[in-house]
Simulated scan of single mutants.
Amino acid sequence: MSYFLEQVLNGLSYGLVLSLIAAGFAIVFTSTGVLNFAHGAVVLLGAYLVAVLHTSIGFWPAVLVAMAGAAVGGVLINALLVRHLADKNAGTAAILMLGVDIVLLTELTRRIGNQVLTLGAPWGASVVRIGDVSLPTGRVIAAGVTVVAFAALWYLFSRTDLGVGMRAAAADGPTASLMGIRLSRTAATGWALAGVLAAVAGVFLTSFPAPGVAPTVALSAFAAIPAWVLGGFDSVPGAVVGGLIIGLTSALVTGYEGDLAGVVGTGFGEVAPYVVMIVVLLVRPSGLLGSKEAVRV
Protein backbone atom coordinates (compact mmCIF):
# COMPACT_ATOMS: atom_id res chain seq x y z
CA MET A 1 0.00 0.00 0.00
CA SER A 2 2.83 2.41 0.83
CA TYR A 3 4.42 1.74 -2.58
CA PHE A 4 1.14 2.54 -4.33
CA LEU A 5 0.72 5.74 -2.32
CA GLU A 6 4.29 6.74 -3.12
CA GLN A 7 3.66 6.29 -6.84
CA VAL A 8 0.44 8.31 -6.62
CA LEU A 9 2.11 11.20 -4.80
CA ASN A 10 5.08 11.16 -7.16
CA GLY A 11 2.71 11.11 -10.12
CA LEU A 12 0.68 14.04 -8.81
CA SER A 13 3.77 16.13 -8.06
CA TYR A 14 5.23 15.35 -11.49
CA GLY A 15 1.85 16.13 -13.04
CA LEU A 16 1.86 19.58 -11.44
CA VAL A 17 5.21 20.32 -13.09
CA LEU A 18 3.80 19.17 -16.43
CA SER A 19 0.79 21.41 -15.84
CA LEU A 20 3.10 24.45 -15.63
CA ILE A 21 4.37 23.67 -19.12
CA ALA A 22 0.90 22.79 -20.43
CA ALA A 23 -0.46 26.07 -19.04
CA GLY A 24 2.22 27.92 -21.02
CA PHE A 25 1.03 26.19 -24.19
CA ALA A 26 -2.58 27.14 -23.37
CA ILE A 27 -1.82 30.79 -22.52
CA VAL A 28 0.07 31.36 -25.77
CA PHE A 29 -2.67 29.64 -27.75
CA THR A 30 -5.44 31.74 -26.21
CA SER A 31 -3.51 35.02 -26.49
CA THR A 32 -2.19 34.64 -30.05
CA GLY A 33 -3.69 31.47 -31.52
CA VAL A 34 -0.22 29.95 -31.96
CA LEU A 35 0.71 26.34 -31.29
CA ASN A 36 4.00 27.14 -29.58
CA PHE A 37 6.20 24.16 -30.39
CA ALA A 38 9.24 26.21 -29.35
CA HIS A 39 8.09 25.90 -25.73
CA GLY A 40 10.29 22.88 -24.99
CA ALA A 41 13.40 24.83 -25.98
CA VAL A 42 12.33 27.70 -23.72
CA VAL A 43 12.05 25.22 -20.83
CA LEU A 44 15.62 24.13 -21.54
CA LEU A 45 16.71 27.77 -21.80
CA GLY A 46 15.39 28.49 -18.30
CA ALA A 47 17.14 25.47 -16.80
CA TYR A 48 20.37 26.28 -18.66
CA LEU A 49 20.47 29.84 -17.32
CA VAL A 50 20.11 28.58 -13.75
CA ALA A 51 22.84 25.98 -14.30
CA VAL A 52 25.39 28.48 -15.64
CA LEU A 53 24.58 31.32 -13.25
CA HIS A 54 24.01 29.68 -9.85
CA THR A 55 27.72 29.38 -8.99
CA SER A 56 28.32 33.12 -9.44
CA ILE A 57 25.12 34.75 -8.17
CA GLY A 58 23.44 31.99 -6.14
CA PHE A 59 20.58 29.63 -6.89
CA TRP A 60 17.54 31.83 -6.18
CA PRO A 61 18.88 34.91 -7.99
CA ALA A 62 19.72 32.61 -10.91
CA VAL A 63 16.13 31.37 -10.93
CA LEU A 64 14.86 34.95 -11.09
CA VAL A 65 17.23 35.73 -13.97
CA ALA A 66 16.11 32.56 -15.76
CA MET A 67 12.44 33.52 -15.36
CA ALA A 68 13.17 36.99 -16.73
CA GLY A 69 15.29 35.59 -19.56
CA ALA A 70 12.64 33.06 -20.61
CA ALA A 71 9.96 35.77 -20.45
CA VAL A 72 12.03 38.11 -22.63
CA GLY A 73 12.70 35.22 -25.02
CA GLY A 74 8.98 34.58 -25.37
CA VAL A 75 8.21 38.27 -25.92
CA LEU A 76 10.91 38.51 -28.58
CA ILE A 77 9.61 35.45 -30.43
CA ASN A 78 6.19 37.06 -30.51
CA ALA A 79 7.41 40.55 -31.42
CA LEU A 80 9.95 39.59 -34.06
CA LEU A 81 8.26 36.61 -35.67
CA VAL A 82 4.64 35.91 -34.77
CA ARG A 83 3.36 39.49 -35.14
CA HIS A 84 4.94 39.81 -38.58
CA LEU A 85 3.55 36.64 -40.10
CA ALA A 86 2.14 37.44 -43.52
CA ASP A 87 -0.03 34.33 -43.27
CA LYS A 88 -1.87 34.16 -39.94
CA ASN A 89 -2.83 30.53 -40.55
CA ALA A 90 -2.29 28.42 -37.41
CA GLY A 91 -0.44 25.76 -39.40
CA THR A 92 2.04 28.30 -40.74
CA ALA A 93 2.69 29.64 -37.23
CA ALA A 94 3.16 26.10 -35.90
CA ILE A 95 5.79 25.36 -38.57
CA LEU A 96 7.53 28.62 -37.70
CA MET A 97 7.60 27.63 -34.03
CA LEU A 98 9.14 24.28 -34.96
CA GLY A 99 11.87 26.19 -36.76
CA VAL A 100 12.46 28.42 -33.72
CA ASP A 101 12.60 25.32 -31.53
CA ILE A 102 15.24 23.71 -33.77
CA VAL A 103 17.40 26.86 -33.88
CA LEU A 104 17.23 27.51 -30.13
CA LEU A 105 17.68 23.87 -29.21
CA THR A 106 20.66 23.54 -31.56
CA GLU A 107 22.38 26.53 -29.98
CA LEU A 108 21.72 25.33 -26.42
CA THR A 109 22.91 21.83 -27.36
CA ARG A 110 26.12 23.33 -28.77
CA ARG A 111 26.71 25.21 -25.53
CA ILE A 112 25.94 22.26 -23.25
CA GLY A 113 27.77 19.70 -25.37
CA ASN A 114 27.89 16.21 -23.87
CA GLN A 115 27.83 17.52 -20.32
CA VAL A 116 25.07 17.19 -17.74
CA LEU A 117 25.04 20.52 -15.92
CA THR A 118 24.23 20.64 -12.22
CA LEU A 119 21.48 22.97 -11.16
CA GLY A 120 22.75 23.80 -7.68
CA ALA A 121 19.31 23.40 -6.09
CA PRO A 122 19.60 23.85 -2.32
CA TRP A 123 17.42 20.82 -1.57
CA GLY A 124 19.91 18.52 -3.33
CA ALA A 125 19.00 14.84 -3.14
CA SER A 126 17.10 15.08 0.14
CA VAL A 127 13.77 13.33 0.59
CA VAL A 128 10.68 13.96 2.68
CA ARG A 129 9.37 10.96 4.62
CA ILE A 130 5.72 10.66 5.57
CA GLY A 131 5.38 7.36 7.39
CA ASP A 132 6.57 4.71 4.97
CA VAL A 133 6.32 7.03 1.97
CA SER A 134 9.41 8.84 0.66
CA LEU A 135 9.24 11.75 -1.77
CA PRO A 136 12.07 13.85 -3.23
CA THR A 137 12.10 17.24 -1.50
CA GLY A 138 12.28 18.89 -4.92
CA ARG A 139 8.97 17.32 -5.91
CA VAL A 140 7.32 18.53 -2.70
CA ILE A 141 8.62 22.06 -3.27
CA ALA A 142 7.52 21.84 -6.92
CA ALA A 143 3.98 21.00 -5.82
CA GLY A 144 3.89 23.96 -3.45
CA VAL A 145 5.33 26.39 -6.00
CA THR A 146 2.91 25.17 -8.67
CA VAL A 147 -0.11 25.68 -6.43
CA VAL A 148 1.06 29.24 -5.66
CA ALA A 149 1.70 29.90 -9.36
CA PHE A 150 -1.78 28.80 -10.39
CA ALA A 151 -3.35 30.80 -7.55
CA ALA A 152 -1.50 33.85 -8.91
CA LEU A 153 -2.72 33.09 -12.45
CA TRP A 154 -6.29 32.78 -11.19
CA TYR A 155 -6.00 36.16 -9.49
CA LEU A 156 -4.49 37.71 -12.62
CA PHE A 157 -7.17 36.44 -14.98
CA SER A 158 -10.16 37.04 -12.70
CA ARG A 159 -9.26 40.09 -10.59
CA THR A 160 -7.05 42.39 -12.69
CA ASP A 161 -7.80 44.60 -15.70
CA LEU A 162 -4.90 43.05 -17.61
CA GLY A 163 -6.19 39.54 -17.00
CA VAL A 164 -9.74 40.43 -17.95
CA GLY A 165 -8.38 42.09 -21.08
CA MET A 166 -6.48 38.92 -21.96
CA ARG A 167 -9.62 36.84 -21.54
CA ALA A 168 -11.61 39.26 -23.68
CA ALA A 169 -8.94 39.27 -26.38
CA ALA A 170 -8.90 35.48 -26.36
CA ALA A 171 -12.68 35.28 -26.65
CA ASP A 172 -13.08 37.86 -29.44
CA GLY A 173 -9.99 39.77 -30.50
CA PRO A 174 -11.59 42.24 -32.97
CA THR A 175 -14.33 43.24 -30.52
CA ALA A 176 -11.82 43.55 -27.66
CA SER A 177 -9.70 45.82 -29.86
CA LEU A 178 -12.70 48.05 -30.58
CA MET A 179 -13.27 48.33 -26.83
CA GLY A 180 -9.77 49.74 -26.35
CA ILE A 181 -7.89 46.58 -25.37
CA ARG A 182 -4.40 46.53 -26.88
CA LEU A 183 -4.03 43.11 -28.46
CA SER A 184 -0.26 43.56 -28.80
CA ARG A 185 -0.04 44.07 -25.04
CA THR A 186 -2.15 41.05 -24.16
CA ALA A 187 -0.18 38.89 -26.62
CA ALA A 188 3.16 40.00 -25.19
CA THR A 189 1.90 39.33 -21.66
CA GLY A 190 0.78 35.84 -22.66
CA TRP A 191 4.18 34.98 -24.15
CA ALA A 192 5.98 36.41 -21.12
CA LEU A 193 3.83 34.40 -18.70
CA ALA A 194 4.46 31.24 -20.71
CA GLY A 195 8.20 31.90 -20.53
CA VAL A 196 8.11 32.37 -16.76
CA LEU A 197 6.16 29.13 -16.29
CA ALA A 198 8.58 27.31 -18.61
CA ALA A 199 11.60 28.47 -16.59
CA VAL A 200 10.05 27.38 -13.30
CA ALA A 201 9.13 24.00 -14.76
CA GLY A 202 12.66 23.64 -16.14
CA VAL A 203 14.11 24.04 -12.65
CA PHE A 204 12.02 21.19 -11.27
CA LEU A 205 12.41 18.96 -14.32
CA THR A 206 16.20 19.07 -13.97
CA SER A 207 16.59 18.80 -10.19
CA PHE A 208 16.61 15.55 -8.20
CA PRO A 209 15.60 12.84 -9.08
CA ALA A 210 16.55 14.01 -12.60
CA PRO A 211 20.32 13.90 -13.30
CA GLY A 212 20.64 17.57 -14.33
CA VAL A 213 20.47 19.87 -17.33
CA ALA A 214 21.00 18.18 -20.71
CA PRO A 215 19.59 18.81 -24.19
CA THR A 216 17.10 15.97 -23.67
CA VAL A 217 15.23 18.22 -21.22
CA ALA A 218 13.53 19.88 -24.20
CA LEU A 219 12.16 16.49 -25.26
CA SER A 220 11.07 15.76 -21.69
CA ALA A 221 9.14 19.02 -21.73
CA PHE A 222 7.10 17.76 -24.66
CA ALA A 223 5.61 15.17 -22.30
CA ALA A 224 3.35 18.09 -21.34
CA ILE A 225 1.75 18.11 -24.80
CA PRO A 226 -0.64 15.25 -23.95
CA ALA A 227 -1.59 17.17 -20.78
CA TRP A 228 -2.25 20.31 -22.82
CA VAL A 229 -4.30 18.54 -25.47
CA LEU A 230 -6.13 16.44 -22.90
CA GLY A 231 -7.18 19.47 -20.83
CA GLY A 232 -8.12 21.57 -23.85
CA PHE A 233 -5.97 23.73 -26.13
CA ASP A 234 -7.32 26.99 -24.69
CA SER A 235 -7.91 26.10 -21.04
CA VAL A 236 -5.47 26.84 -18.20
CA PRO A 237 -7.61 24.91 -15.66
CA GLY A 238 -7.66 22.10 -18.22
CA ALA A 239 -3.86 22.17 -18.27
CA VAL A 240 -3.87 21.52 -14.52
CA VAL A 241 -6.34 18.64 -14.83
CA GLY A 242 -4.51 17.21 -17.84
CA GLY A 243 -1.14 17.48 -16.11
CA LEU A 244 -2.38 15.62 -13.04
CA ILE A 245 -3.95 12.86 -15.16
CA ILE A 246 -0.84 12.42 -17.32
CA GLY A 247 1.54 12.56 -14.35
CA LEU A 248 -0.49 9.99 -12.44
CA THR A 249 -0.76 7.73 -15.48
CA SER A 250 2.99 7.89 -16.13
CA ALA A 251 3.92 7.18 -12.52
CA LEU A 252 1.54 4.24 -12.06
CA VAL A 253 2.28 2.57 -15.40
CA THR A 254 6.04 3.01 -14.91
CA GLY A 255 5.89 1.93 -11.26
CA TYR A 256 4.02 -1.27 -12.08
CA GLU A 257 5.73 -1.89 -15.42
CA GLY A 258 7.08 -5.23 -14.22
CA ASP A 259 3.57 -6.49 -13.49
CA LEU A 260 2.24 -5.17 -16.80
CA ALA A 261 5.12 -6.37 -18.96
CA GLY A 262 3.38 -9.61 -19.85
CA VAL A 263 0.34 -7.69 -21.11
CA VAL A 264 1.67 -4.48 -22.72
CA GLY A 265 5.42 -5.12 -22.91
CA THR A 266 8.24 -2.99 -21.57
CA GLY A 267 8.49 0.77 -22.03
CA PHE A 268 4.73 1.26 -22.10
CA GLY A 269 5.04 4.03 -19.52
CA GLU A 270 6.34 6.38 -22.24
CA VAL A 271 3.38 5.58 -24.48
CA ALA A 272 0.60 5.47 -21.88
CA PRO A 273 0.03 9.28 -21.70
CA TYR A 274 -0.61 9.40 -25.44
CA VAL A 275 -2.97 6.44 -25.23
CA VAL A 276 -4.97 8.23 -22.52
CA MET A 277 -4.98 11.41 -24.62
CA ILE A 278 -6.29 9.60 -27.69
CA VAL A 279 -9.02 7.79 -25.74
CA VAL A 280 -10.26 11.05 -24.19
CA LEU A 281 -10.17 12.91 -27.51
CA LEU A 282 -12.29 10.20 -29.13
CA VAL A 283 -14.99 11.08 -26.62
CA ARG A 284 -14.30 14.83 -26.21
CA PRO A 285 -12.46 16.21 -29.28
CA SER A 286 -12.06 19.63 -27.65
CA GLY A 287 -10.45 18.17 -24.53
CA LEU A 288 -11.82 17.93 -21.01
CA LEU A 289 -12.24 21.68 -20.45
CA GLY A 290 -11.44 23.20 -23.85
CA SER A 291 -13.77 25.38 -25.90
CA LYS A 292 -15.35 23.73 -28.89
CA GLU A 293 -14.35 26.71 -31.04
CA ALA A 294 -10.62 26.11 -30.48
CA VAL A 295 -8.68 25.62 -33.71
CA ARG A 296 -7.03 22.27 -34.32
CA VAL A 297 -4.15 21.57 -36.66
Rank of each mutant, 00 (worst) to 15 (best):
V17H: 01
T137Y: 12
G262L: 11
P285W: 10
F204K: 02
V279D: 05
G247N: 01
V271A: 09
P273E: 03
V276F: 05
A125C: 08
F29C: 10
V276P: 00
V280Y: 07
T189Y: 09
L20C: 04
L119C: 07
H84V: 14
G113S: 13
R111Y: 06
I278T: 12
N89K: 09
I246D: 00
I141Q: 11
L230E: 01
V65T: 11
G190Y: 02
V196F: 03
W154D: 10
G173K: 14
G24V: 03
L105V: 08
I141D: 02
A41S: 15
I57E: 10
L53N: 05
G258K: 08
G247D: 00
I102H: 05
S250W: 10
L49W: 00
L252I: 14
V65W: 08
N78G: 09
V72R: 10
L156R: 04
V280W: 07
G290W: 01
L156I: 07
L248S: 01
G255V: 04
R284P: 05
G120S: 09
S207P: 08
F150P: 03
F37D: 01
H84I: 06
S286P: 04
G24Q: 11
G255I: 01
M166S: 12
V241I: 14
L80A: 15
V297Y: 11
L244C: 07
S286I: 03
A187E: 12
P237S: 11
A210L: 13
L248N: 04
